[in-house]
Design a protein around this nucleic acid. Structure first.
Length: 608
DNA sequence: CTAGGGTTAG
């Protein structure tokens, strides 16, 4: 009697507790249950479960996440298997298909993604850094040269002022809101009055192009006759650049024709911009036309031009031709050393072809090219290695990638974020979790943050692996702790595997803590997870805690599975608490579930 | 009288 009074008191004291004290409350409740169970042996007919299995219990979790969102577990599993089986075929097809896709409907291919913008702004930034460096080195070089002071000053100012003017214009344009830019522009031209020169307008158009105000730049060009100015060579060059930026290389080609008609001779640089724009959209035919024009003009393409073509050939899948072209360039360099120094293949050329080979699954040949480049005295860059990593990882040889990583470090090339994440992604994709762990480790040491999705995958992989190799438990703990400290979101199926791993390790307490964390994160565990924990608790004989989990499920408004009841009844039977087993059975029936397991008294009944 | 060009992952 005493016992029950104490338990009831504790129970009512804890009734109003908050969500996260639920466990404490439940355990008190269980104490009450046990007391009542003992009593019910002498007073038959007391149903101890009425209290919390009855109707009207408050939901435990405020807004449980719907579990069935991703379909049934069976459907999900099947989907995964099919996906896995198709994967090696899939990427190849996808790659090729894309290529043709680009060739045929090239008109509609706007900006790629937000990421691209980041890249662009980064490029802009790094370019401005290198430009300012160039100016610096220029001035210091002039200082030590034999130029007279006035000459030097003049040259320096001239060089600097044109650039600075354009840069200032760009800043000004950027500072004004987009709608007012047109007005500002008009007033700027107005202010110039009669003294406007072609140079000024050119700077203006250039500034607009650099500030991505391409339509305004075109408008200004159209208005040039109104100001009594006619375009010069530089104006046309900027215009071509503008159309290339607008992703309308065909228009650019038209400007080129017009330019030549008017007797202007474009530069290699301008032509290369055009070739690049054509190639990167897969318009190889046009690009070759431009090359022909270059030949006619006697304006020889240089490495940069050829590199653009190489890239273009690879892009549309004509890797073989790209390879031949590279070999041709190399041979040309070997034969006549006089005038070919500007067309000798450099590391960019090799990288372009290697990337092409890797994308069609010929990373072996790409590797040979790497050796060749090194033998030629070229220094492979990070990008070169990254292309190879990508190839290896797509072909399912991520281990070779690990070897390459070591090689590149030995050769003094520092891997960047892309190197590591490509490799890590590949290792995870092909199930090499230990290798992936070591790559992760290295990344963390260097100071790179691993993407949250990959961390989830890594953790899941390590969990599964640790079931057979217990020495991996510490890695699981490490990764899980890291994810929590980084505030990464742990996915529901990852939680499930961590919980299951704790159960297998016979650390049910940790499993319970993880379950609590999972609920706090806003996920309600699937029944499999629930059953896993109930089974784990039962194995340790902690049947009251196991019961509390079942209660938790009911109070959350979830429908417990038959298996949960089976496990509990089985355990009650095993411990000899037939009445407990009967009560659980009864509770199940009340919910409309008929457990497979039946209360049995095969063992001797324990009396308290 | 000069400006101005090229490479990488999911």
């Amino acid at each position: 009697m005493d016992e029950i009074e104490v338990a009831v008191k504790k129970f009512s004291e804890n009734r109003k507790s908050t969500l996260f004290d639920e466990y404490e409350r439940l355990s008190v409740e269980i104490q009450l249950n046990q007391a009542m169970l003992r009593r019910s042996l002498s007073e038959p007919g007391t149903s101890m479960f009425r209290a919390h299995l009855g109707v009207g219990a408050p939901p435990l979790v405020q807004q449980p996440v719907e579990q069935g969102k991703r379909g049934t577990s069976w459907g999900n599993g099947l989907h995964k298997i099919v996906k896995k089986l198709l994967r090696p075929v899939f990427w190849k097809k996808k790659g090729r298909k894309n290529v043709h896709h680009h060739v045929e409907k090239e008109q509609q291919e706007p900006s790629r993604s937000k990421n691209n913008n980041d890249l662009k702004s980064w490029k802009r930034f790094s370019k401005s850094v290198s430009n300012s460096f160039r100016i610096q080195s220029y001035s210091s070089a002039s200082n030590s040269s034999t130029l007279s002071l006035t000459e030097m000053k003049g040259e320096y100012q001239e060089y600097n002022s044109s650039k600075a003017k354009v840069k200032q214009l760009v800043d000004e344009i950027r500072a004004t809101p987009p709608q007012e830019r047109s007005k500002i522009l008009d007033s700027m031209i107005e202010k110039q009055g009669e003294s406007k020169t072609i140079g000024y307008i050119n700077d203006l158009i250039m500034g607009l192009v650099m500030a991505e105000e391409l339509d305004l730049a075109l408008k200004l060009f159209d208005e040039m006759p109104l100001h009594g100015l006619s375009p010069d060579c530089w104006t046309y060059s900027i215009l071509i650049r503008c159309y290339c930026k607008k992703n309308q290389p065909d228009e650019g080609k038209r400007v080129l024709d017009c330019m030549i008609e008017n007797g202007f001779r474009p530069n290699v640089v301008t032509l290369t911009i055009l070739v690049n724009s054509l190639c990167s959209r897969g318009r190889l035919q046009r690009a070759f036309q431009v090359l022909e024009i270059m030949g006619e003009l006697g304006c020889n393409p240089n490495v940069q031009t050829y590199n653009c073509v190489l890239k273009g050939l690879c892009f549309v899948g004509r890797v073989e031709e790209a390879y031949d072209m590279l070999m041709g360039l190399k041979r040309k360099g070997d034969n006549d050393n006089e005038d070919s120094s500007s067309t000798n293949p450099d590391i960019y050329s090799y990288t372009a072809v290697m990337d092409g080979l890797c994308k069609v699954g010929r990373s072996g040949e790409a590797m040979e090219l790497l050796e060749e480049a090194i033998a030629m005295g070229l220094t492979p860059s990070v990008v070169t290695y990254n292309a190879l990593f990508n190839g290896y990882c797509k072909e399912g040889k991520p281990r070779k990638g690990v070897g390459l990583l070591k090689q590149m470090k030995d050769r003094g090339c520092v891997p960047d974020y892309i190197s590591y994440s490509t490799l890590l992604h590949g290792l995870l994709k092909w199930g090499k979790f230990m290798a992936a762990y070591w790559v992760y480790k290295e990344m963390a040491e260097v100071g790179f943050k691993v993407d949250g999705r990959m961390m989830n995958t890594l953790l899941r992989g390590l969990c599964r692996k640790s079931w057979n190799e217990q020495e991996l438990f510490k890695f699981v703990d490490e990764i899980y702790a890291k994810m929590k400290s980084w505030d990464y979101s742990v996915f529901p199926d990852t939680y499930y595997l961590v919980i299951q791993t704790f159960c297998i390790r016979k650390e049910v307490d940790m499993a319970l803590i993880t379950l609590k964390e999972m609920i706090e994160a806003g996920y309600f565990p699937r029944m499999v997870t629930i059953n896993r924990i109930i089974r784990g608790l039962c194995k340790e004989g902690k049947i009251s805690q196991a019961l509390s989990i079942l209660v938790l499920v009911c109070e959350a408004g979830k429908f417990p599975s038959k298996i949960s009841f089976n496990i509990l009844i089985d355990e009650f039977n095993r411990q000899g608490f037939v009445l407990g087993a009967c009560n659980v059975y009864g509770a199940a029936l009340k919910l409309g579930i008929i457990p497979h397991q039946i209360p049995s008294s095969s063992q001797q009944i324990k009396l308290p």
